[in-house]
Write a protein that binds this DNA or RNA. Sequence first.
DNA 1: AACTACCCCATCAACTTAATAGAGTAAACA
DNA 2: TGTTTACTCTATTAAGTTGATGGGGTAGTT
Lengths: 136, 136
Amino acid sequence: MLSKKTKYGLKALTYLASQKENTPVQIAEIAENENISQKFLESILLSLRKTGFLGSKKGKGGGYYLIKDPKEILMTDVMRILEGPIAMVPCVSLNFYEKCDDCPNESICSVNKLMLKVRDANLEVYRNNTLADLIM
Amino acid sequence: MLSKKTKYGLKALTYLASQKENTPVQIAEIAENENISQKFLESILLSLRKTGFLGSKKGKGGGYYLIKDPKEILMTDVMRILEGPIAMVPCVSLNFYEKCDDCPNESICSVNKLMLKVRDANLEVYRNNTLADLIM
DNA sequence: AACTACCCCATCAACTTAATAGAGTAAACA
DNA sequence: TGTTTACTCTATTAAGTTGATGGGGTAGTT
C-alpha cells in the first residue's frame, strides 16, 4: 500500500509543477487545494527540500518552489525519498540491500527470484516517468 | 514491503511443489526447513487451503499437499490471497476497487495516473509467473 | 520592528504485523 | 473402539508504523 506521505508528496510536487510561474507557493495553499493535513505536509515538503527537489523562501511571499525542471525529476528518486526502497524485500534492493535474516541462501530462494522480477518491472516504470509526465 | 505472511506462504508453496510425490507434508516439516514459526505457518496454510490451493489430510501421515499443478497456479491469485491488493492505491485496484476519500476526481489525479502504470507492470509479472516458475 | 511562514520537537490514537498459547476436533490405524 | 496424530480455531500480546496534531522557536521580508 502506498503511504499517505508518498501520496501527498506526489500531489504537492505535481501542484508545484503545474504552476505557470515558478514562484513560491505557500504550504497552506497546497494543503487546501489537495486536501492534505497542513502540518503533515510541512514535514513532507521539508524532506523534499533537504533532498534537493524543492527550494523554500521565508517571510511574506514565501513558500516552496521546484528547483529542477519537472522533466528532470525521475520517479525513481522521488519514490525512494518518500516511500523508501522500491524493492519489496531488502535482498533484492539496489539502494537499500540487506540480507534476509531467515533465508540461508538467496540464490535458491523462490521469493528472491519472484521479487527480482517485480523490482525490475517497477524500476522500469519509475525510470521512464518524470514529474512532467504526471501533470494533467 | 512484502509481509512475512506472503513470504512464508510463497516458500511453503514452493516447498510443496518441489516434492517428488504429491503426498501430504506436515506443517512441522515445512516450518523447520524454511525457518518459519510453526504456528504462524499454520494459519497461512489454512487460508491457502480455504481458497483452494491446498488440500489437507488429518491423522497419522497427514499434512498439506498441492491440489493443482504448479503450472496452473498463477502468482496473481497467490499474491491476492496472501498479500491483498496488487495495486498500491485502492482507486486503481481491479479486484479491490475503492474511491480515495481525499481525492475529488480520479481522472485528473497524478497519483492515480502513475499508480495505474505501476499496477499494470506488476500484473504483467504476476500473470506471467506460476508456482512452477519459482522452483529452483 | 512586526509580520509571515518555515522549521523542529514532542505527543498521541489507531492500526497492523508477527508471534504465541491453549484448547478443540476430525481422521487414521491398531 | 480407543488412542494417537495433526489439523483447526480463538484469543492474546508486544512491537512497530502511520498519520495527525499542537506548541513553540527562528529566520527572512517588508
